[in-house]
Design a protein around this nucleic acid. Sequence first.
DNA 1: TTTTGAGTTGTTCGA
DNA 2: GTCGAACAACTCAAA
Length: 436
Amino acid sequence: MNGIGPVTVFWFRRDLRLNDNHGLYRALKDAGNVQPLFIFDTDILDKLEDRNDRRLSYLHDRLGSLDDQLRSHGSSLLVKQGDPLSIFRSLVSDLPISAVYTNHDHEPYALGRDRHIRDLLRENGIALHTFKDQTIFERDEVVKPDGNPYTVFTPFARRWKQRLGEEGIPSYPSEQLLGGMHHNSSHERIALEDLGFRYALYEAVEQTPSIDLLARYAALRNTPSVEGTSRIGVHLRFGTVSIREMVRLAMQNSDTWLNELIWREFFMQVLWHFPHVETGAFRKAYDAIPWRDDEASFTAWCEGRTGYPLVDAGMRELRETGFMHNRVRMVVASFLCKHLLIDWRWGEAWFARWLMDFELASNNGNWQWAAGTGCDAAPYFRVFNPALQLQRFDPQMAYVLKWAPEYGQLELPKPIVEHKAARDRAIASYKTALAG
DNA sequence: TTTTGAGTTGTTCGA
DNA sequence: GTCGAACAACTCAAA
């Protein structure tokens, strides 16, 4: 490697941007000579079920544009593939590393990974500096006066907004310090094929919702045939936008949308404080529900062949695009858990596989909400009526016909369950399980 | 400690 | 067609 003297490594993970990046800002400001690094983590990649995962294509594209930007500043992204611990083991012997900077990742897997890397670096006399970047508040920054975590959204959101008002939103103008990147434009890129993947087309999404969209957000967000939602989930997941910029925008334009951003942090702190939710019900009594291991019905749901137009359209949209409108997510989730009485974890895993904007905490929290097993969840007797939801939110069938055109034919698919019978079965099953 | 009010997104039934 | 109550109690948060 060119350049003289020690380098500071900045490790990109879920913060793939050069602007308003907290950890990058601190690395540039406090240390300098910053070598940017990204690791394709084979522990994660090996678990992906599809060789043409849209998310990996998206990630790869973003790294390409990150590298382009870095090269315009005389630097380049060092990209490695492997398990991160081994990668760092070889990096510390190859490079004169003075410190490693990165941003927090509180998912269970990441916590363990980072602990091992911190230990390895410490053994080599290298400090790992980590920073809050992907949320406004994290861990136990928003808790009740007695120090315990909130488990109900509304008081959490109240306290969150109060703290925000007191503290304001910080800025980390890393983009102004890029002259301090380590000068080295010799790093080669790793092709998707070298990782064992193929390119999958995906629909690019605006990074910033327009003021116009936010002005109508509260009114239009439940209409799946309209572009009424922000769709920035994918950007928040990969950190291609700054949450701080989004919250500023929300505060100026839409309190309804701001609450959605707070929901994201609510579920993140639920996962942090109650890690058992990753595999089981938040309320343990709900683990007694006798889920039906009905693989045929599950497959019909996955493939969008339930005979319920809104459910089928949503499941097709998911498969075809990696996205599903939020209103429809609620309908299909309620349908799986209540009408089919299938374990919410099956649905959670399917969404995790296909959603471009998949985020463990939000996906888990919202599935537990729909199943009625979570904190502050929908009560178990609240069963979405897919026909009524269709009538209410897609009365012209514009959304349905876009994704499931067979519902425009005279002969309609036959429902795999009858609504009233399924609803009664769900309520009775939950009731019995919870009484036991 | 006790009390009180409230709790994302719904549906159904009967007046 | 419209409207309010019931659904099922329970837990949570805050005073």
